[in-house]
């Protein structure tokens, strides 16, 4: 068995020590720090990116919240304005209606007074005409002129009887 040939023990040990020492130094000094650095850098980068993404998402959510708040405010303000306007218009309208009502009432009263006055005048005219006509009729019928007071009292009595006093 060649493995038990002790002639080659020492050369193998010498070269094993040399080559392994070289390998250890290269790995420990150069290769492993480099690979570790690469892995760490990537991990940091990914963590960084994730953090940035989180921040952006938070910003976006904040913006959405702001927008919704602004929208709600605008809506409530619009509603308030609409309410105000409606109330103001209603108040104005009520005032105008009250004014108009008052004016119309005044005109109505005036008109009623005028009508009453005209009616009175008309009635008194009727009395005069009736008295005149009665005087004419009496003079034509009986040939004597009746006294004006007699005639007018008779007319008044007659008018009162027909309900026109």
């Amino acid at each position: 068995m060649p493995q038990l040939d002790s002639q080659w023990f020492v050369p193998q040990l010498v070269w094993l020590a040399l080559t392994f020492l070289f390998l250890y130094i290269v790995m420990a000094r150069v290769a492993l720090p480099r690979v570790g650095g690469i892995i760490e850098e990537r991990r940091d980068r990914i963590a960084d990116d994730l953090e940035k993404a989180n921040q952006l998402q938070q910003q976006a959510e904040q913006a959405l919240a702001d927008y919704e708040e602004a929208l709600a405010q605008a809506r409530s303000r619009a509603m308030a304005i609409a309410n105000d306007t409606r109330e103001k218009l209603k108040a104005e309208m009520d005032e105008m209606r009250a004014e108009a009502d008052a004016k119309f009432n005044a005109q109505l009263q005036e008109a009623e007074q005028r009508i009453a006055a005209m009616k009175d005048q008309a009635l008194s005219n009727v009395k005069d005409v009736a008295s005149e006509a009665a005087t004419e009729l009496v003079s034509h019928l009986i040939g004597t002129s009746a006294s004006a007071s007699q005639v007018s009292s008779a007319v008044e009595a007659e008018l009162a009887q027909s309900g026109h006093a």
Partner: peptide
Amino acid sequence: PVDASFTNASLWMVIVVVTICAFMLLST
């Protein structure tokens, strides 16, 4: 007094170490 002859075993130890170093260093 030390026999440090470069044998075929030594050659393959060197090849092993060089291959590992090349793999670890060139790839990164």
